[in-house]
Nucleic acid binder design. Structure first.
Lengths: 213, 213
DNA sequence: CTGGATCCACACAGATACTG
DNA sequence: CAGTATCTGTGTGGATCCAG
């Protein structure tokens, strides 16, 4: 939330006054996956200066996008959680992700991939269908899962019992650009499944070059 | 386009590196309505520092979002026009506008409304229907028009022959927040039509407090 | 260890003046 | 009309430090 305004009575301008500053929508992106602690957010955004993260969280709280909750004992942890208002930024973040993914080239050495990025990538490239399927996607140490039920998609962190397991291998960076879809990736061997994955083409994209373990 | 990157292989991060700086998406918003000259952009964004506008346009051109064209004689004017790649930010801008419009309160004295803002507001609040209609909306000196054809909507600057003319009066600010729709506005007298407007409820919102002429 | 606060250097934004 | 130049301030980056 900048103190400076754009001087326009316009939804776009107002939105940018609230979430247009540096790092803001990346913090929102991670919180869209689920509530997170301060340290979790830092881990997911290693390059964010700590004072900037603290400032953004305070601004979000004041603007009503985020609530700061203290977990009951024994954890006592402080978590930041999106309000419904904040969570309504979902379609904004997905639209941005869809557009920006086309500009992703090779994975650069200084770039990281987090589980939150995988979750949002799956969600933003989802094609509605009429079939049902469960996937568990492994990318290096990261594990996320997706549940496809026709036009509905649920994606979350961690493994899922009974899901088809997909392993992402290098170099499949072009997939994330939408140039190749999941079915083609399976055929080409860039994407490998441990089971029978008939519906990988639910997603226009999978994932980029795997980290070298 | 910041020289600083976010260090993430993520569509959202990449998008924000391209159009995440201050004023960037407001320039894009105006260009989404149509090609514009440097002076037109300044007029639509009175508070933008001229060097920032020049810098953004250069960044957009280098990133392939915008092309700088010199019009044939006699005009010889220089216009900036979105490429297809840049125009694909349409859904991002509309999503941002929809979300941000809910936070629009009263029109502040230092805030202006432009025809481009009206166009994007109409587009972002459109409800698909099965009917056909043509509207011409007047707001102070500003005139825009909308053509509804079922699920298709065309909005552009200026008047339109044979359209139903709508006049927006103060204070109808709450409409832009989506709290009241066009039909209710007509009934309440906040929105007035010179003809028979049966389908104003195509739009969830109309417009804020009129400028005092 | 979590959840920050503080400090400093600097890049970028804001404002204004000026030019081909 | 379409910018460039310059100066000033604030926000950001980066490192370090501190309290519960």
């Amino acid at each position: 939330m900048t103190t400076k305004t754009y001087g326009q009575y316009c939804g776009v301008a107002r939105a940018l006054e609230l979430v247009g500053e540096r790092w803001a929508l990346l913090i929102i992106r991670d919180l869209l996956v689920g509530p997170k602690r301060y340290t979790d957010l830092r881990a997911g955004l290693p390059k964010i200066p700590t004072n900037v993260l603290a400032t953004r969280l305070k601004e979000f709280e004041q603007a009503g996008l985020v609530v700061r909750r203290v977990q009951p004992r024994p954890s006592g942890a402080i978590v930041y959680e999106l309000t419904e208002y904040g969570a309504d930024l979902d379609e904004v973040v997905l639209a941005l992700g869809r557009w920006g993914a086309r500009s992703l080239g090779e994975l650069r050495p200084d770039e990281i991939i987090t589980a939150e990025v995988l979750v949002m990538a799956l969600r933003s490239t989802f094609h509605p269908s009429r079939s049902k399927a469960k996937y568990e996607l492994h990318f290096g140490d990261l594990v996320v899962h997706a549940i496809v039920d026709g036009a509905d998609l649920t994606v979350d962190l961690g493994p899922l019992e009974g899901a088809v397991v997909l392993e992402a291998f290098a170099p499949i960076a072009p997939l994330l650009t939408g140039a190749i879809d999941g079915a083609a990736a399976l055929q080409s061997g860039l994407l490998k499944t441990s089971g029978t994955a008939k519906h990988v083409d639910h997603f226009a994209a999978t994932f980029p070059i795997a980290p070298t373990p």
